[in-house]
Nucleic acid binder design. Structure first.
Lengths: 211, 211
DNA sequence: CGTAGTCTTGAGTATCCTCAACGAGGGTGG
DNA sequence: CCACCCTCGTTGAGGATACTCAAGACTACG
């Protein structure tokens, strides 16, 4: 359902015919299971979020997918989810699921590549587990900023962009949007981070976020 | 780092020579990275917990491993962890990591089996993500009981055993042990669960826990 | 320039954590 | 065999943290 290929220089998926599609802000890429069974997804540009709607009406964001990340490992989870574009012009490549599966089974090199992606995904999920296990909301927001910084390309000034809203971050961390805002303000006042705008942040004291 | 093989009837690992070892309660099976790099682990009987010690001294339990579960996918995470036996007489099989890797690369059938385990692990981690994303502590404890019930063998009376202490559950869910206790009491009073003892629970109203 | 969405901040309330006490087993040693 | 101790589980009281509701500030965009 997730993973990164940034460490894997070559692109074995080039052997499989893909369709590239462009999505607008908040547009649904996958709804329920109707599509997930038929395709693997790879984010080409932009940002997507994977959401689950709880029975109490609250939205939970399972994951953000950055360029290079994959979606579609899982055959069929017990929960109904959607994948949506967060920013305008998000581009997604779709690979026929059956072709991926067949190639993984027949080509050892490709199979190993898939395993690498799956292991990366597990590693990243466990990192998130630690972030969510933090008690304080400031720690959660700090861990989120660190994770995003490590996954995003930094610009020359060392700034990281936050393409998602405070509400998205809140649903990702399981806290309220107001608490996210207060945590960011607190980190700024402590000098741990520096805000270049509401959606642009520079991490000043990395060690302070590593708690 | 985790996964289940209950859906995979055959045992491809039988092709690899393993060493079986027995551990006492709270005994360390893996400490830091000194051992994790050299072996894959498979829980044969009993229960283990995977812990991370935070810099603030708090212990975070990343995962509980039940019989049939695996450990050792990840080459080297950024965090120092330990794997410990939760109950006396926990049995663990150790497989040389290099042998597993070589067999996965050379044997397509075995490689596919490994992928299945990894995908199962991702699926389970995402389920936990939802549980941890719950706002209320009662929901978290309820989700934990459901997860445990689905992973554990039930006895004839439909009861599930809780081999771990309230403190373990607390560190797993990121809440305090007292809050775990209060949540269990509340669920009991609401008639959602039935306690046959402090370490034995029967789920009466499954739907009520599915929130 | 107005409007809608986003972000921040404030006030009051609910939830959870911390500290503490107490009871129930289980094991050990006298 | 029993007193003792130790851990675990539960419950209570007070304080800290986060949520909810609300209002105001900022931004993007038509």
């Amino acid at each position: 359902m997730l993973g990164s290929n940034r460490e894997h220089a070559s692109d074995p998926l080039g052997m499989i015919e893909a369709s590239l599609k462009r999505y607008g802000r908040d547009q649904e890429i996958i709804h329920e299971q109707e599509d997930s069974l038929r395709h693997w997804l790879r984010i080409v540009s932009g940002l997507t979020r994977t959401c689950v709607l709880r029975s109490d009406g609250k939205r939970q964001i399972i994951d953000f997918l950055l360029p290079g990340d994959f979606f579609g490992f899982i055959d069929n989870g017990p929960y109904a989810f959607t994948v949506e574009a967060v920013v305008d012009g998000t581009q997604v490549a779709r690979y026929p699921r059956e072709r991926v599966k067949l190639l993984a089974d027949s080509d050892p090199h490709f199979g190993r590549w898939i395993r690498g992606i799956a292991f990366d995904g597990i590693s990243r999920l466990q990192g998130r587990m630690l972030a969510l296990g933090s008690v304080s909301s400031v720690e959660k927001v700090g861990a989120f900023l660190l994770e995003l910084a490590d996954r995003s390309p930094q610009d020359s000034a060392g700034a990281v962009s936050l393409p998602m809203s405070r509400y998205d971050i809140a649903d990702y961390l399981g806290i309220s949007a107001e608490t996210v805002s207060r945590a960011v303000t607190k980190l700024k006042r402590q000098g741990v981070i520096h805000l270049l705008g509401t959606r642009q942040v520079r991490i000043v004291n990395r060690a302070a976020l590593m708690c």
